[in-house]
């Protein structure tokens, strides 16, 4: 079974969707977070990729680009002990309230 991200030559009859997408604020933030985390030596781009690649297939197929990024950033930061899942969940609940 090929890995989810290894897509070259996979059967795919979809036309290329050429619709433009202007990045939303949170997407710019997710990108900037990654820049700051790599710049600060907290995590590497390869760790970001590895985290994306370890997503469940159904999530990978349907997640938007920066959704994959933030999912991976969270996974890697939790793995490293920089953040823990419970505090992220709490903060999400506070922000979403």
């Amino acid at each position: 079974m090929p890995l989810i991200h290894d897509r070259g030559g996979l059967p795919d009859d979809r036309p290329i969707d050429r619709a433009e997408h202007e990045l939303e604020d949170w997407e710019l933030t997710a990108d900037a977070l990654m820049q700051a985390l790599t710049g600060g030596g907290v995590m590497t781009v390869d760790e970001l990729r590895r985290g994306v690649e370890s997503m469940e297939r159904w999530r990978y197929e349907h997640a938007s680009y920066y959704d994959r990024w933030i999912t991976s950033i969270e996974k890697v930061l939790v793995e490293k002990g920089v953040l823990n899942g419970a505090e992220i969940d709490r903060r999400v609940a506070e922000l979403g309230a």
Binding site: E27, A30, S64, I70, V92
Partner: peptide
């Protein structure tokens, strides 16, 4: 299990991801 579903996600359509981004940013 729908590996080749035809509904490619709309970029940026997930408020959940936006919220998690904000949460992670603020904690960091």
């Amino acid at each position: 299990g729908h590996d080749h579903d035809h509904d490619e996600p709309v970029e940026g359509a997930l408020p959940a991801a936006a919220l998690r981004t904000r949460a992670i940013e603020s904690l960091l």
